[in-house]
Design a protein around this nucleic acid. Structure first.
Lengths: 386, 386
DNA sequence: CTTCCCGACTAGAACGTACTAGTCATTGGG
DNA sequence: CCCAATGACTAGTACGTTCTAGTCGGGAAG
């Protein structure tokens, strides 16, 4: 499905000797064997020392390779990049020498020189499984377009603005923010410096693009599914102030209303964590005269908390209560969980995000791409009881 | 506990105008006030256009600032870096102009120029909560030493060698690998190019440092704890081939033997995922004549799978079965889980890792730092039944 | 024998910053 | 009244690449 990037022409375990890893595919065999023999013959110092030596004062540069090969740096550059302009013989020789010397192209200099850095910045949240899925696909999607993804994490002790600043200094060509919580003013400041793309969040700021699932539709899929199973009393544990939560809340209420179930709809303040879901579910079980027969959680993490509480209370899922998550992240797919959830299609979203970002870089007008989510029926939903 | 980096001298919401954010601390007040006023007065074009303009052909450079201020780039450099050598008046003026122009120092050029890039590379696994914890603390620890952490993720579709290559090209000064699965040969190749530090894994390769918890001791803490609570039949669901798993397996068996319970010890092949734990627990419940009264899982994720199965089967925890995890990651701390676990102290480990990496960079001899883990008693362990 | 082209190669100028070694006033001590 | 010291500033080089505009030889076409 994604191929092409992870296992390169080499054997997949070797580290780059030279080149960007995706350009050359010429002569890795000769190259590798040359390396091994060189390895033995070059060793006049024990491995411990060798390591220290290589690291001591700067790593070998193109000039070192050129000198060793008795040619110009320009020619070395040609060989390393794998572009035409060098004879087959020279090419082989340079590659061998580069390997012997342990030369690795300096990305800082490459990026500085190349007009475009070919780098996309990605800001994500460290502990959100769905973000993990997205990041993984973003790496692949970027690589497919010849771009590199550099990631910068947000965590309780690392503010989003800190993460963004790191990317800004990195001189990436665009920023892709996953589920960003930046204010409109902050986004305005940012987009003035860098093409900016929001993922899984609606953009209120002109100039800022957005790729997101249709949250209203997504929640309605869940509502329709549950109503179709005979459920009437359905609760929604929402995402508090998180991006997308108001859409989902609205979609839920509208969906219920359209089914004539406005009175049976219940919305609880939740959050993005397991604990928020657990708290919400506990409240529903303990404080309500008649608990709902189905719960739609803001996301899979929240739903996991809901499921935990139900399991501990001995409530059968889906026998007594059905549960629907959102995102179709790793959590929902786990074999012992099998959560019914609304899929945001991480791979498709990543593709769309990279495409949109590249369009922004090329000067395209910022657009809002809305993907249609899809319901994934698994084992946590079933017919309403009695 | 970590301070100093997340909430900087600025208001925490603004993006960097200039400076590396951690070197200067001289005149941030003047800087900021100048900044605000500049912000209002500079707007002669609408935000939409401004964005396009700023991005069109390269961002402003030091030379642009220098030209606008009628001074040399060298002086601008002095001001931006906050080093002595410019008058207070010039300093203020340059800072204001830099802000107006939206100047952000180019990290590529900075790193290229500075002999040391002041960057630590970190390779982590996207979907491991404990890695998430470590990364968060590594950011902070690196910042405390004036270093920047750049992270590169490993995922099912992104091999560890790919992640490492990305860092190699980034020219970081050292690589910190979390729970690496690289083979000894691969590590040997790597350490020849870059000081390398393993976290949460024993290093078998000379030249490669390591910071890890004492896994034998950690598991014995768990065993002692459970035996002290009267448990005799204890199972260990291990980490299959994961780093540390053989130590933990050994520690478990040795601990049980020392308590004269060698016959009651049971080791199951597990893994690092919830599913591995669930499968192991299901096996213990279904296939064994007398299931154990306590389970020690390889890590918190594995333990989570165990707990899920127990909850679904209606087995009381810790009433019937006690469960111990490992890592004290986010999963163990969740209020509705309250898992008893062996803490690896992510913060301490991150500190030690950064310190060790910096030592390696300075040419120190690679060492193995072993931290003593600590048992965190929470709600998933209790006295053995009857 | 020219002329032209083509492949293999090179010189040298960027890229944006940091930093060394200055210059040029001004001050202050002798 | 000169010399050294100080503060504010600048020229110019280096960092390791990429890339433009070549040079140089030699074979094919005229």
């Amino acid at each position: 499905m994604l191929g092409a990037q992870a296992v390169g022409p080499a054997d997949g375990t070797a580290f780059d000797q030279a080149g960007s890893g995706d350009v050359r595919e010429l002569d890795d065999d000769a190259h590798d064997s040359a390396h091994d023999s060189a390895h033995d013959s070059a060793g006049q110092s024990p491995p411990g020392r060798a390591a220290a030596d290589a690291t001591r004062k700067g790593r070998p540069t193109m000039a070192d390779v050129a000198r060793a090969a008795g040619i110009s740096t320009a020619l070395v550059s040609i060989v390393i990049r794998g572009v035409p302009g060098a004879s087959e013989e020279t090419r082989r020789r340079v590659l061998r020498i580069a390997d012997e010397l342990g030369y690795v192209p300096d990305q800082r200099a490459q990026k500085l020189r190349r007009s475009s850095s070919r780098v996309l910045g990605v800001v994500f949240e460290l502990q959100q499984p769905f973000h993990g899925d997205l990041v993984e696909h973003l790496y692949a999607a970027a690589a497919r377009h010849g771009y590199e993804a550099v990631i910068s994490a947000v965590a309780p002790s690392r503010a989003e603005s800190t993460a963004v600043n790191a990317l800004l200094r990195e001189r990436c060509e665009a920023a892709i923010l996953l589920g960003s919580r930046l204010s409109d003013e902050e986004l305005e400041r940012l987009v003035r410096r860098l093409p900016t793309l929001l993922v899984a969040r609606r953009s209120g700021v002109p100039g800022v693009g957005s790729v997101r699932g249709d949250d209203m539709v997504g929640i309605r899929l869940a509502v329709d599914h549950l109503v179709g199973l005979g459920h009437r009393r359905i609760a929604h544990i929402d995402g508090a102030g998180a991006p997308g939560s108001s859409d989902r809340r609205l979609g839920f209420l509208q969906g219920m209303t359209d089914h004539g179930l406005a009175d049976c709809a219940d919305v609880l303040a939740g959050g993005l964590t397991e604990e928020a879901g657990a708290e919400g579910m506990r409240y529903l079980l303990d404080r309500q005269v008649e608990p709902p027969t189905a719960v739609i959680a803001f996301n899979d993490r929240t739903a996991t908390g809901v499921l935990d509480v139900l399991a501990h209370r001995g409530r059968a899922v889906p026998g007594e209560i059905s549960v629907v998550g959102y995102d179709d992240s790793r959590l929902a797919k786990m074999p012992h969980v099998q959560m019914t959830t609304v899929s945001q299609d991480a791979a498709g979203m990543a593709d769309a995000a990279v495409a949109a970002a590249l369009d922004l870089i090329k000067g395209g007008t910022p657009r809002e791409t809305v993907l249609t989510p899809r319901l994934v029926e698994r084992a946590t939903t079933g017919p309403a009881p009695h």
